[in-house]
């Protein structure tokens, strides 16, 4: 029931964001229509970082409590974070082409996201090469902790490296009120979508465990 409410809330906000991004918001003067990507690109990045923070918390909780639930939560959040950050990287690339004439720029935030993408891909590669569930959760937990601790260092080093080159100005006149409102609507839309997906995905993993338990029961009974 609660998930239904969450779903309709995020669907409504997403529809509102369509209107805000496509119709309501004024076109930015220097970059033109393509700047509208920004309203999805930036919230995607923020929510992805939040998702990886949840992975960090879930990993710590798992390693201390050893309750499978925390691993389900952490790995679900890692998966959704990976989906969001992949979309963020692709849209960043699509934005870079008309604006700077290249498909990729080594901009600090974009570069940090790329490194994060690799870390959480590794998170799933490690899981894939382990058969025992408990060990999977343990190792993934360690990657979830170490990977997240790395975020500030990656960002710091990339920023320091890139500031030796001319900085990029994204906005000539700052965010005006309608732009800010649009950004906030998109942020809320993705935020609720994330919470909805996280609960959906975590419950799915609980169900998977239930299926496994039932199967074992049947196997036992049939000798």
């Amino acid at each position: 029931m609660k998930r239904k409410i969450l779903f309709f809330l995020s669907a409504g906000l997403i529809l509102a964001s369509f209107y805000m991004v496509l119709v309501f918001v004024p076109t930015e003067r220097d970059m033109g229509v393509v700047q509208r990507i920004f309203y999805y690109h930036v919230p995607l990045a923020w929510i992805a970082f939040m998702a990886f923070f949840i992975v960090f918390i879930g990993s710590i909780m798992y390693l201390f409590k050893r309750k499978p639930f925390w691993d389900y939560l952490a790995s679900s959040s890692a998966e959704i974070g990976l989906v969001f950050i992949s979309l963020m990287l692709i849209t960043g690339s699509i934005w870079a082409q008309p604006t700077w004439g290249v498909w990729w720029i080594w901009e600090p935030r974009l570069t940090t996201s790329l490194i994060l993408w690799f870390i959480y891909v590794a998170y799933f590669i490690v899981r894939g090469y382990i058969s025992e569930e408990e060990k999977q959760a343990r190792f993934a937990g360690v990657v979830g902790i170490i990977g997240f601790l790395n975020v500030p260092l990656v960002f710091l080093s990339v920023t320091l490296w890139r500031t030796q080159h001319p900085p990029l100005t994204i906005f000539t006149e700052g965010l005006v009120a309608p732009m800010m409102a649009t950004l906030l609507v998109c942020l809320f839309a993705f935020n609720f979508l994330y919470i909805y997906l996280l609960s959906e995905r975590t419950l799915m993993k609980l169900d998977e465990a239930e299926v496994k338990r039932l199967k074992e029961n049947i196997m036992e009974r049939n000798g």
């Binding site: 033109g32 229509v33 393509v34 990507i37 979309l87 849209t91 699509i94």
Partner: peptide
């Protein structure tokens, strides 16, 4: 409006992906 195509492409990528 000359770069609206890119906007549309990004829009389609995001929502079809999700």
């Amino acid at each position: 409006m000359e770069n609206a195509g890119y906007m549309l492409a990004a829009f389609i990528v995001i929502w079809s992906g999700l």
